[in-house]
Amino acid sequence: MRTLGMFVKWPRPGQVKTRLARSVGPEAAVDFYRACVEDMVDRLRLSGDRRILAWAPESPAAARYFSTLAGDDFDLWLQPDEDLGGRLIRFFQDHACHPDDRVVVIGSDSPTLPLRYLDAAWDALKDSDCVLGPAVDGGYYLVGLRKPIPALFDDIAWDSSTVLTQTIRQVRQSGATLALLDPWYDVDTLGDVELLDGHLAALDAAGERLISPRLRQSLDLLREQTDGFHPETD
């Protein structure tokens, strides 16, 4: 079974997009994050055989929000109160349980991620134990497994620019076979937002328009607020 897990947080000031918030303020950062999540969920509703929103933190309001967002297309899975490594371990333990499972996890920081990258990840897991999608900031935008490898997420400095390097080390030590996807970019800072804005414009010009109405509206508001973006302030 091709399973897609998307790790998401309830949009709240001070809890999401904190690096972007330093440039645009917490409320604008939350609005941008919410737009990314909601547009991505809509784009992913037909991806794979099963889709799961891995949400946090636990609260009645967050549960209502994600239940409404998921609709009939996503299952919900509450992230445990652990660091990212612990949460990833638990997710794969819960969902990579059978020989035919191919489980891929993404976050919400790559709103333009092509859907073909997900298909490539599931295809790679036919022959490899692990697949990683390198992010240009030194982390990764996707990780996939066909069986749990708990050691994969041990001793990782999650807020550093060496997450990918450390994870590759853990892959080697575990003896797992590895496949790599092409690099892609995350959106964490105002400079990244400018890159995203330009990328969407380029896609439009090339006739490959990405359907992302909430994201585009959020970008328009950020452009007005920052007078055309000024990434040097990041």
Rank of each mutant, 00 (worst) to 15 (best):
D119V: 10
D119C: 02
D119E: 15
A120H: 11
A120V: 06
A121N: 13
A121F: 10
W122K: 10
W122N: 09
D123Q: 15
D123H: 14
A124I: 11
A124T: 09
A124K: 15
A124N: 10
L125I: 11
L125H: 06
K126F: 09
D127P: 00
D127H: 13
D127F: 11
D127T: 15
S128F: 12
S128T: 07
S128Y: 12
D129H: 08
C130Q: 05
C130G: 01
C130A: 14
V131L: 05
V131Q: 03
V131G: 05
V131E: 04
V131C: 03
L132K: 10
L132M: 09
G133S: 05
G133L: 08
P134F: 09
A135Q: 02
V136W: 08
V136A: 12
V136Y: 06
D137I: 11
D137P: 02
G138M: 09
G138N: 04
G139L: 01
Y140V: 08
Y140E: 00
Y141S: 03
L142C: 10
V143C: 02
V143N: 06
G144T: 07
L145N: 06
L145S: 03
L145G: 01
L145P: 01
R146P: 01
R146A: 01
K147H: 15
K147T: 12
K147S: 13
P148M: 10
I149R: 06
I149S: 00
I149M: 11
P150T: 10
P150S: 09
A151H: 07
